[in-house]
């Protein structure tokens, strides 16, 4: 039964199983285990990033193509919800319309990009997605009448999802709409993750992996490589957009920095690589570790920089704003020495 839910793709490592269960339990009971606004923010962010990273892994890890447009698709979903909520008013219907149109738009755009670039060379894809994503990011900040520009959009969502909606107390925790909202995010993320797990373990997913290993051979056996790659791109884009919609529902705000920035794209890359490319579970560990580190380690760097004050160069390198540099170094080292990521290590070390 459990194996069926996991599509037969069990963790295959005792430590990994324990870690995944711990993550599941913590996220499922987050409002009660870790009371406090910041903790709940962190938990919701983790849920959403797990889906976002897993959908990216479908592309990078399972299909072997690099995209720099994943945040664009993420943003499409987020802006879909934001725009629908702004124009259709506060309603469940607006959320639904926004989510659906965001996902469809993402899939269509992915189809177009895929048809253009994957037809020729997989390597074109990386470059073209980078170009398109940056053009879209600039476009979003330019078309401020529609998108709110750099400031982004703030909008209303159904009252039942907001802190203003209170309905009692449980285990000493005040129950409010925010908790309902969290469980919406959690449940949707869980379903999407299991869906992705199903996809990669389906015959379709196995063809993708065959293409990743040797696209000439896959083509020779008779699979239309371009078709499979494009389909994977569309699926991945649609799921990323759904994750974006969840993020928009959770934050009640969208802006270029929270959804479209290149920095988030790098975060996603890092999460996939650290967790383990081509192993859906890697997305879980990668996202958890990364989001926690981002939220709490940056303050630590500030402390370290303060401690190193007076020393040459070191304070500059430890400045919390140089967080990205350490990520870059970590990223390079992971690709060299740790290409299978944490999950790969755990599975082989069993």
């Amino acid at each position: 039964m459990l194996t069926a839910i996991l599509s037969g793709d069990t963790p295959r490592s005792r430590i990994l199983t324990v870690l995944l269960l711990a993550v599941l339990v913590c996220l499922a009971a987050a409002p009660f285990l870790f009371p406090g606004v910041r903790a709940l923010e962190t938990a919701a962010t983790i849920c959403i990033f797990i889906v976002l990273v897993a959908s990216y892994d479908l592309l990078l890890g399972y299909t072997g193509i690099v995209s720099f447009a994943h945040t664009m698709f993420f943003g499409l979903g987020a802006y879909g919800v934001a725009l629908a909520s702004t124009h259709l008013g506060r309603s469940w219907g607006a959320l639904l319309v926004g989510t659906a149109s965001g996902a469809v738009a993402a899939a269509v755009l992915a189809l177009l990009i895929g048809l253009f670039s994957l037809r020729v060379r997989a390597i074109f894809f990386a470059m073209i997605t980078l170009a398109v994503a940056s053009a879209v990011a600039v476009l979003v900040s330019q078309l401020f009448e529609i998108t709110g520009g750099e400031d982004g959009l703030t909008y209303q969502i159904p009252r039942a999802l907001t802190p203003a909606f209170r309905f009692g107390e449980l285990f000493g925790v005040n129950l409010n709409g925010r908790i309902i909202n969290y469980y919406l995010v959690f449940a949707a993320s869980l379903v999407l993750f299991l869906l992705l797990l199903r996809i990669v373990n389906s015959p379709f997913g196995r063809v993708l992996q065959a293409i990743r290993e040797n696209d000439f051979r896959a083509e020779a056996i008779g699979y239309r490589v371009v078709w499979y790659r494009t389909a994977a791109t569309c699926l991945s884009a649609a799921v990323a957009a759904l994750a974006g919609s969840l993020y928009a529902i959770w934050l009640r705000y969208v802006g270029p920095d929270t959804t479209l920035s290149f920095e988030i794209m790098l975060d996603i890359l890092l999460m996939v690589v650290i967790g383990g490319m081509g192993t859906m579970y890697g997305a879980v560990l990668g996202a958890v570790i990364f989001v926690l580190a981002q939220n709490y380690l940056q303050s630590l760097m500030g402390v370290a920089a303060g401690a190193a004050e007076g020393l040459p160069v070191l304070p500059l390198l430890l400045d919390p704003n140089r967080w990205l540099m350490w990520l870059g170094i970590l990223f390079i080292l992971s690709v060299y020495f740790f290409p299978t990521g944490i999950v790969g290590r755990l599975r082989s070390g069993r």
Partner: peptide
């Protein structure tokens, strides 16, 4: 050099290199 012949890794590590150099410029 360590990633000759592997496009995927090339893209990843050279992006990493880009970030590191950019950040060093900030430093």
């Amino acid at each position: 050099r360590p990633v000759y012949g592997a496009h995927l890794k090339q893209i990843l590590v050279t992006v990493g290199g880009l970030i590191v150099i950019e950040q060093l410029i900030h430093v």
